[in-house]
């Protein structure tokens, strides 16, 4: 069971990217190493989605873009009853969607 989320680091120039691309946006390189997306950061922005997408039976779904201390940003689910722009959070990995009986793991941000 894969319970980590990965971006990539370019083997040529060291640039970190999430999500992965086939070509490095910094140097044009094609060779990458997996880079685990983990750590602390702050909430850049968030929303509560009431018009729920397929596969969710909730009152609302709380999503955020987080800026990690490494400088990388990631979109994920925000597990926090008192969300604020700029609030410190850390990454965890959990089930973010269940579709056709299949569990999908992804980033869930929780307060530090």
């Amino acid at each position: 069971m894969e319970e980590k989320v990965y971006g990539v680091q370019c083997k040529t120039c060291g640039k970190e990217t999430y999500p992965a691309h086939a070509v490095c946006p910094n140097c044009g390189g094609h060779d990458f190493e997996p880079l685990e997306i983990t750590g602390e950061g702050k909430v850049l922005t968030y929303t509560d989605v009431y018009a729920l997408p397929l596969d969710y039976a909730l009152r609302y779904l709380r999503l955020a873009i987080v800026e990690l201390d490494s400088g990388l940003r990631a979109t994920g689910q925000l597990v926090d009853d008192d969300p604020k722009i700029g609030k410190r959070v850390r990454t965890t990995v959990g089930v973010v969607r269940e579709t056709g009986g299949r569990k999908i793991y992804g980033l869930q941000f929780v307060p530090v």
């Binding site: 999430y18 968030y46 509560d48 997408p53 779904l61 990631a74 994920g76 689910q77 992804g106």
Partner: peptide, 26 residues
Amino acid sequence: SHPQAEYIYGVTLPALAGMFTRLYMD
């Protein structure tokens, strides 16, 4: 939306617009 980095989390176009709006207001 991006299949691995956005869609799997339940991201919709209104969700992206909502996050954009909150940042714009701020």
